[in-house]
């Protein structure tokens, strides 16, 4: 997995966000066993305590669970995953709208721009790009 970190946020919360994204986008499948903390920490290049803290937070949110003897797993509850996905989507949309509003576009125009943009992408796709 590719990990990237920005300078202005705590590392553990960025780990939470990136693992969550991996779960909702299906990189990690429901019920899949996660690698041990140390391996995940090495992969991300972060301190194992920080990775541990991130996983505990994900556990608190119900995205992952621990089985005493066999390790940590992604939740099998697809409802939890779906609602996390929806929450992320809503947040993206909110920030997109805020940006567009800052640029001075009224709501209706944002919708038509978005539609046009999607159309264009579709056409480009047809041309094999």
């Amino acid at each position: 997995m590719e990990w990237t970190f920005s300078a202005d946020l705590p590392i553990y919360s960025q780990l939470v966000a990136q693992i969550k994204l991996a779960i909702v986008s299906g990189v990690y499948l429901p019920g899949e066993r996660l690698a041990p903390v140390r391996e995940l920490a090495m992969d991300a290049g972060v301190n194992p305590n920080t990775m541990q803290r991130a996983l505990q937070e994900l556990e608190r949110e119900g995205m992952v669970y621990t089985q005493r003897t066999s390790g940590r797993f992604v939740t099998e509850d697809t409802k939890v995953i779906e609602s996390a996905k929806k929450l992320l989507a809503e947040r993206e949309i909110k920030s997109f709208l805020a940006q567009m509003t800052r640029l001075g576009y009224p709501k209706e125009e944002i919708v038509s721009l978005l539609k046009a943009s999607i159309e264009e992408e579709k056409n480009n796709g047809d041309m094999g790009m």
Partner: peptide
């Protein structure tokens, strides 16, 4: 090294200026 640290100790002129966790500073 920032990503692999739990805590940092800032030292200057022989005195401890700050001791904190990395994520507390970022937060």
């Amino acid at each position: 090294v920032e990503q692999v640290l739990d805590d940092v100790i800032f030292i200057n002129h022989g005195q401890i200026v700050l001791k904190s966790s990395v994520d507390d500073i970022r937060e």
